[in-house]
Amino acid sequence: MSSPHPLPQRFAIGYHPTMAEAPLVAEAVQQFLERQGYAVVICAPLPSLRQHLQAGQADVLIALGGDGTMLRAGHVCAPLHIPVLGINLGRFGFLMEVRQDEWPRRLPLLLSGQYWLEERMMLTASHLRGEQVLGEWSVLNEVVVCRGQIVRPVRLTATVDGYPLSTYIADGLIVATPTGSTAYALAVGGPIMPPELRSILIVAVAPHLSMDRAVILPPESVVTVTVQSSHQAVMSVDGQPPLPLENDDVVRVQANHNTVQFIRFQDRGYFYRNINAYMELNPAAMDNE
C-alpha cells in the first residue's frame, strides 16, 4: 500500500433511496464516525446530497448501494474531486470496495489514511443535430447508440478523429471506458481492460455483415457515431433511460477532463482476483442497483 493519504475530516454518507436496509446501515456508519469524534457527518439519500457536496461540505463520500449507486456517486463527485468509498448492499457490487459485513473493520483504515485512490477515466458524450448541441453528459461506463422498439438493426457510421472507421449494421454500438469494459461491452464479447487504463473502447452489438471486432483507441481520440436509419434509434448513457435520435443525428464521444476517484484498501492486484470470481456470477439476472 502506498504512503498514507490526508486524513478526511468531513464525511457525506449517500445511500440508495429505495433499498430497505440502506438507511439503517447508513445510520450505523454515521454513528460509528460520530463516536470517533467526527462532527461533520451528512447522511441522506444520494440524490439529496448534491448541494451539500457542491458546497464543499465533505472530504469523502461513502456510497451505500450497488454498482448503479457507485456510478451515480461518481458522476456527482468527479467534477468536485471528492473520492468515493463504496459499501456494497447489492448483489453484484463489482465497483464497490467494502462488503456490508466488513465496513466496521475497513473504515478505521480510511480514518488513518491507509488507503489509495484509484483514478478512473470518464468520457463526454454530446448529442448533435446539425450544428446544434442538444445535450451533453459525463460517462463513467459507456454510451450506447442502438435500435429502439422496432426489432431491426440500425445503420451507424463511426469515425475516429474525422477519419472513417466503419459503417455498422447492428443492434447498436457501444463506446466505453475501461470501467465500462466489464459492463455491457463485456456482455457482447468486448475485451476486459484494467481500470487504470486511459483508452476508449468501441464494440458493436450483434453486428450483421459488419465489423465484429472491438477497437481500442488512445484517450485523445474523438469518436462520432452518425445515425443513418429509417426507423427509430436511441442513445443511453450509463444505463439511463434512452433518448430518441433522428436520422443524421450525431453522438460525439471524447475523453472527459474529470476522473472518478475510488477509495481502495486492497492491493493493486485486486482487479484480477475479483474478475475471476465475478465472471461466475450473472449480474443480468440480479435486481437493478
Rank of each mutant, 00 (worst) to 15 (best):
Met1Glu: 06
His5Cys: 06
Pro6Leu: 07
Leu7Phe: 06
Gln9Thr: 09
Gln9Met: 08
Phe11Val: 01
Tyr15Gly: 01
Ala20Trp: 06
Leu24Ala: 14
Leu24Asn: 12
Ala26Gln: 07
Glu27Asp: 12
Ala28Gly: 03
Gln31Ser: 08
Glu34Trp: 09
Gln36Met: 10
Gly37Met: 06
Val40Lys: 12
Val41Ile: 00
Cys43Lys: 15
Gln51Asn: 11
Gly56Val: 03
Gly56Arg: 07
Ala58Gly: 11
Val60Met: 02
Ala63Leu: 05
Ala63Cys: 13
Leu64Gln: 11
Asp67Met: 12
Leu71Phe: 07
Leu71Cys: 01
Ala73Pro: 07
Gly74Ile: 01
His75Trp: 05
Val76Asn: 03
Cys77Ala: 11
Cys77Glu: 05
His81Ser: 13
Leu85Asn: 04
Ile87Ala: 05
Arg91Leu: 07
Phe94His: 08
Arg99Tyr: 06
Asp101Pro: 01
Asp101His: 14
Asp101Ile: 10
Glu102Trp: 10
Trp103Ser: 07
Trp103Asp: 07
Pro104Tyr: 10
Arg105Ile: 00
Leu109Ala: 11
Leu109Trp: 12
Leu110Ile: 06
Leu110Gly: 06
Gly113Ala: 03
Tyr115Leu: 12
Glu118Arg: 12
Leu123Ser: 02
Ser126Val: 07
His127Asn: 04
Leu128Val: 01
Gln132Phe: 02
Trp137Cys: 04
Ser138Thr: 10
Asn141Arg: 04
Gly148Asn: 09
Ile150His: 09
Pro153Gln: 01
Arg155Leu: 04
Ala158Val: 15
Tyr163Phe: 08
Pro164Met: 06
Pro164Trp: 05
Leu165Asn: 00
Thr167Met: 04
Tyr168His: 09
Ile169Val: 13
Ile169Pro: 00
Ala170Ser: 15
Asp171Cys: 07
Thr182Gln: 10
Ala183Thr: 09
Ala187Asn: 13
Val188Tyr: 08
Val188Trp: 07
Pro191Ser: 05
Pro191Lys: 10
Pro195Leu: 13
Arg198Leu: 01
Leu201Lys: 04
Val203Gln: 07
His208Phe: 14
Ser210Leu: 05
Asp212Gly: 12
Ala214Leu: 01
Pro219His: 11
Ser221Asp: 04
Thr224Cys: 08
Thr226Glu: 15
Thr226Lys: 15
Ser229Cys: 09
Ala233Tyr: 04
Val234His: 09
Met235Asp: 01
Met235Trp: 10
Asp238Pro: 08
Asp238Met: 13
Gly239Leu: 12
Pro241Met: 07
Pro241Asn: 09
Pro242Arg: 08
Leu243Lys: 14
Asn247Ala: 10
Asn247Lys: 14
Asp248Gln: 15
Asp249Tyr: 10
Val251Cys: 01
Gln254Ser: 14
Ala255Tyr: 00
Ala255Lys: 14
Val260Cys: 10
Gln261Glu: 13
Ile263Val: 15
Asp267Gln: 12
Arg268Glu: 11
Tyr270Glu: 08
Tyr270Met: 12
Tyr270Gly: 05
Arg273Leu: 03
Asn274Glu: 13
Tyr278Ser: 04
Ala285Gly: 00
